[in-house]
Amino acid sequence: MRSRLRRPVSQLTAAVLACGLGATAGCGNQQENADSNQQADADLRRELGHRARQVAKAWERSPAAAAWRTGYHPTGAVTQLPRDGLRSKGENRAYQTGRFVLRAKLPAAEPKDGRVTWNRHESLTRPLAGAEETYQALADDSAGTHLTVTGAKLGDMRVSTSRGPATVPAWLFSLKGYDSPLKQAAAIPSKLPRPPIKKLVGVAGGVERLVRISADGRAVTVDVRLSGCHELAAVDEWETRSSVVLTTPLKSRKKDGLCLKRAKSQQTTVKLDRPVGDRAVLDARSGQPLTYETRLRP
């Protein structure tokens, strides 16, 4: 298991440099404290590495792994922009912040279920969100530059999933000024399987969500959950035949007993030895598989 982030100059190194440039009465204490902090960081990293191996072992051949392989779990974007993308920075910001205006009557009658189909001729019937529910998953209707929806019809789109690329029922929203539609997957994802291992408690941080998997499958971008008292030391991965387990050891930012308590997220990318493929990407702390965030819930 390897670190994939360049670590900053350690607290120990900083203390040694400071004392070398000008010795003070506090240098010995500073170096002892830095040494102690560095040892604590190393101990935590080893513990999380052991936890990653436990999660991978528990996941292998578990009911959770079977459910993951047979369900519909998006691991890539469930929205597809019009062909050639949006025309301006303002409209891109409108899309990112959900600023849509509806200037059409959305279909009231639609099928309750649809089929998700994979390349291997496998398929799965999933309940579908209606046009109104799918539109609301996109829209905020706030003021400012916006995108105008002029109609909607049911079609399909390609989505990356835990079982590979799939053709998924989708609502195709016509936008004013565009020749091709904005597509939003309508199939509701399967419920995430229950982890086969108990959640690790008493350790800060953890992977919050999957952001993207690169086209070649060898890079995974995630959001890491932090408090204002910590910074990300590294992201480590433990790869097996059936899973990729991510650990996120943190370092304390505490100074003079004070730190910001507000939680935040940090986005980072992890490079893998081989493509993700149909392996589950797991958070070591929760034991839970990571999926692409969507507002259409099971």
Rank of each mutant, 00 (worst) to 15 (best):
H50C: 04
M1I: 03
I188T: 10
E237N: 07
S160K: 06
G206H: 01
E132W: 11
L272Q: 01
W59A: 01
D43A: 05
L5M: 07
A219L: 15
A25G: 15
R93N: 07
R115T: 13
G206K: 02
R225C: 08
L48C: 08
Y292G: 01
R103Q: 15
G76E: 02
H50I: 12
A15N: 03
L147R: 00
L290C: 03
P289A: 07
L138H: 11
K153L: 04
G155P: 02
S160Q: 10
Q96F: 13
R103H: 14
Q184M: 15
W68R: 02
R194P: 02
K57C: 11
P193W: 02
Y72L: 07
G206F: 03
D273G: 12
A263L: 07
L272E: 03
L12P: 09
L128H: 05
A52L: 01
G217T: 04
S174W: 11
S180E: 06
K261L: 13
S174M: 09
E231L: 13
W238K: 05
A67M: 10
L102I: 02
L12W: 07
A42W: 05
L210I: 08
R212M: 12
H146Q: 15
V149M: 09
E122T: 03
S243P: 03
T145N: 13
A42Q: 07
E208A: 14
K112S: 15
